[in-house]
Nucleic acid binder design. Sequence first.
RNA 1: GUCCCCAUCGUCUAGCCUGGCCCAGGACACCGGCCUUUCACGCCGGCGACGGGGGUUCAAAUCCCCCUGGGGACGCCA
Length: 471
Amino acid sequence: MSGVRTRFAPSPTGHLHVGGARTALFNFLYARHHGGTFVLRVEDTDRERSTDESTRAILESMRWLGLDWDEGPYFQSQRTRLYLEHVERLLEEGKAYRCDCPPEVVEAKRQRALIEGRKPKYDGTCRARTDVDPSKPHVVRFKAPQAGATVVPDLLRGEVVYDNEELDDLVILRTDGAPTYNFVVVVDDALMGITHVIRGDDHLNNTPRQIQLYRALGYPLPRFAHVPMILGPDKKRLSKRHGATSVEAYRDAGFLPEALVNFLARLGWSHGDQEIFSLQELIDRFDLGGVGRSASVFNEDKLLWLNAHYIKECPQDRLVDLVRPFLERKGYETANRDKLGVLVEAFRARCKTLAEFAEKATPYFVREIEVDPAAAKKYLKASIAPVLADLLEAFRAVERWDVPSLERAFLEVVEGKHALRIGKAAQPLRVAVTGTTVSPGIFETLMLVGREWALERIERALEMARARAAG
RNA sequence: GUCCCCAUCGUCUAGCCUGGCCCAGGACACCGGCCUUUCACGCCGGCGACGGGGGUUCAAAUCCCCCUGGGGACGCCA
């Protein structure tokens, strides 16, 4: 195991977002590629919004994606003492100070600054005070350097320079005694020996503050890599209003984990012209050099294409297992694995998601089907009635309900007796047994529907065709 | 408003660091064709981009500057 240690640190305030999942994936891949350790840490310092339910959901999504962590999950809510000790230390060393400015006052000043076009930062009212009463409500602020500049060395962007005047004295301990994000992140990353902090671009601006904290605390800096964000089709930060954004939602919509992983990896990272990567291949090939610098738009069409690809590739046994819950959700009987196997083979090239599979499989699980009116109008005409009647008779006589027998019977009637082209009869028959104009090969379809249902559906279609003759 | 980041087909991207092999390659989507009992799959083909302007150079997608555009951050959220 190399010295590389990365981490993923979600806050449990909702489901695992695809953006978060990609960050997790990059950290996972980087650690695995370098033979390092991938740490999972739950940032639940915000007691108000954090829930156990979210934690469960996030861990489950991570497992589903195959992003196994080597250490953790650690919970920040259980490490409060550590943080308080660090706050205390900064206080003692004069690197932090107590501030009892009322929140409303600070907020009002910020608003005014914003309106007046100034940088909305804390004005340092309490910075030099020594008379703040520790027994009264107050926060603790970090005494940030006021002159000079702080440089963020970033593996992807080079050295990003921030004028220290841009940064103010951030709160590190809230009035309620809870430490804040920017502070605990530094303490934890330092204590956990994280060597590479790989995270979203949106954190780049937090980094100079964090670097100042590392320095104040006397901890060595990890390496930083700020990866580009994922945007919605409107180029805005991807959010719920763009539709499904949680890993869970994609799972429920019938995406395979390998498709999502492959897709997420290719968002912001590339390896030449290659598009398809297994998780192992990603581990072998992933490195920061292949990561881009510009934000990328989440393109669902490509995800769909990848998903279709993986459905086509999926071994039958697993595909049957994957498809089952989707069928069950629709109340279909899934005990017959052989039937599912045949069905899955018939439809794997025709579905982009597992949900779509379940949708398309309806005529093979539900006895009463609806016949699409447009299809009926076009194909179940009076002229086809004699053919359907003969087919019905021929199929009734068929000994074995399998593809070769059905094909033989069909050809005898259609090409033999009626001298029709195959398509002329296949389409009406398809409409008869599936209610639609689209399905796998007609003999395969007949077989999938099964003798009993097929015969009764043909009978019904025959009635419809004859009715057209009458009317 | 201030600061920071970014900028190749509609989208994901290769190429950029180490200028010439690029009148820019691949993929998704789209359009056409082939295959075919329908639909898919598959195969073949097409459409389509270096944001603009200045430099530097014999030569720039590649280096520099400005502009424009987009994104992000400015919390007692993370």
